[in-house]
Nucleic acid binder design. Structure first.
Lengths: 310, 310
DNA sequence: TGGCGACATAAGCTGGGTTTATGAGCAACA
DNA sequence: TGTTGCTCATAAACCCAGCTTATGTCGCCA
């Protein structure tokens, strides 16, 4: 139910975000200025001319209504406000980097050096970070990515359409060897304003089972784990068909939600959601790297694998 | 030392991010299409015409080399790849929203309805989230933000230049009442590849004190807390003057770093950094809301305060 | 079979960002 | 005290991405 989305997170002021937030190029430029302490230097690094950089920073300052850099004939330093803005900008740029590597992997459909198949959650939340690290280490490895459920991942590996797979199920498909690379956990979250938001005493299993929760639909991976942990008793307040919709509903304060901790890192950090302590419920599940039995990963696949096991 | 930055996170491929990642307007449009299931509907919502939306989505698909939406005369649905891309896009847009509310608060220098003064760390990592929540609840409260250390925050409150303050020190400035709103903690982090990266046995205080660490400079808030916790013994591998520089050095694998957990949420989620368990070291510090003694927050200040205490 | 909704195509316009060219301030150094 | 070299600012001309308006095509439904 994504109208929750509109109610809570939609544009509150006329003129969409894009009109109030500088574009990526400008943000990158700002980061470069912060790092190098010079407009001209930043311009050089980004392959544009100094006047272009100067004008772009200026128009960004006009747009935000705040002076960002102190210009002097000896260079440019960030103002206090500029430092703050730069750090917020950095988060946008980092998200864009993750987007970039993900999209790049998605593009190179076939015949890439390293072909990865991964479950949705892993592809969505973890792979971009890993690929970023891989690219730092092996800049010219082209990676391709295919996302699907455990069955699809297994098929692609066994038909030699993928070199390495990642699954999050409770079981490992037959014909595949695997190694646990991380432990995901379902956690209970709620909006800070909600009654459970300030709760310190852990919620017990029976209390969780008897409370209406915002959940993924029956049959989804996370729902399976939760039902198993509670003994099939989870009681839905509402059932939604995507992680995002669940998050949106939770943020809007509709009630407590159960989600992978991978999915809510950002919301927890930003305090749009808070974690509710839970006791006596086994909500952990393993994330595994998988490959065809016998075919131990080599080359770039081995590198990626070792990155994930850090 | 920010050249670490360049080595690890700099542009690996020619043509900066901005050329490979669609701009914010396009990403917002994509999210709207995903939500509404229609190009024309999304166009209407963003206040542009249908052909503009159509062309923009198309050019985004060209740019990424991936089909994002299945068009039909009955509407448009995301492809599998489109769903993945949309979720990555959402993270960029969310970061942009945080940027936006922060910048807006920074702009409205004076005479705003709610004037907030906050320490850097809080202003940087927590306030945007709070302001986002506040805006959802009270859309037309104009907020202004001033960032500075505890002393500055106290001054502004006492001279009636701010209605509500946030500090992270170990002590509360005199003349102010306060309430603890959250518990920050310094944590030890390292790149996944580092020796401590896969460590499960906690690091003890003496081992931490005898290991060279990537640290903020002496005198910084985090350094003070660390030195106090270790008894002034922290041994720097290198001292850097910003949280960002410390993170960059840690991500590049230079060694273990000590940072506020607020600062590394993203990196932990993306697995660019991993947390090292530590035992027997008191690295917690309180984050407090503060106001002039007697002047209990009222109106919007009270609302913001209650949001933060979720 | 006409009407409606949704998407595609075409042509023309506009503006933000770019370049080149040039000016001006400050510092270090002979 | 000039001279050199770094910085940033300004001005004018250009270019292209994205917008709008106008129109065409396809499929569904009454």
């Amino acid at each position: 139910m994504s109208n929750t989305d509109e109610q809570g997170g939609g544009p509150a002021v006329a003129g969409s975000l894009a009109h109030r937030v500088p574009d990526l190029g400008a943000l990158e430029l700002l980061l470069a200025v912060a790092r190098l302490g010079s407009l001209g230097g930043a311009a050089r690094e980004l392959g544009i001319t100094q006047p272009a950089a100067s004008s772009r920073i200026r128009s960004m300052e006009r747009q935000l209504g705040v002076a960002l850099v102190d210009r002097s004939p000896r260079g440019s330093r960030l103002t206090d406000a500029g430092a703050l803005v730069t750090d917020w900008a950095r988060r946008i740029v980092e998200a864009a980097e993750a987007f970039d590597v993900g999209a790049q992997a998605l593009r190179d459909r076939r015949d890439s050096r390293l072909r990865v198949a991964a479950s949705m959650t892993i592809a969505e939340y973890l792979l971009p970070g890993w690929l970023l690290a891989l690219r730092a280490q092996r800049p010219d490895t082209a990676v391709s990515l295919h996302a699907g459920n455990s069955t699809v991942v297994a098929e692609r590996l066994l038909s030699d359409e993928a070199d390495l797979g990642f699954v999050e199920g409770l079981t490992v498909p037959t014909g595949l060897d695997s190694v646990v690379i991380a432990h995901d956990r379902l956690i209970v979250v709620t909006a800070p304003g909600h009654a459970w938001g300030r709760r310190r005493r852990p919620v017990a299993a029976d209390e969780l089972a008897s409370t209406p929760l915002i959940l993924r639909e029956k049959g989804s991976g996370t729902r399976q784990v939760l039902d198993a942990a509670l003994g099939g008793l989870a009681r839905p307040l509402i059932e939604l068909s995507s992680t995002t919709a669940v998050k949106a509903a939770a943020v809007s304060g509709a009630g407590p939600a159960v989600l992978s901790e991978l999915a809510v890192g950002e919301e927890l950090a930003m305090r749009r959601l808070v974690r509710v302590p839970v006791d006596g419920v086994a909500l952990a599940r393993d994330l595994r790297a998988v490959w065809p039995t016998g075919h131990r990963p080599t080359g770039p696949a081995r590198d990626l694998l070792s990155l994930t096991r850090g």
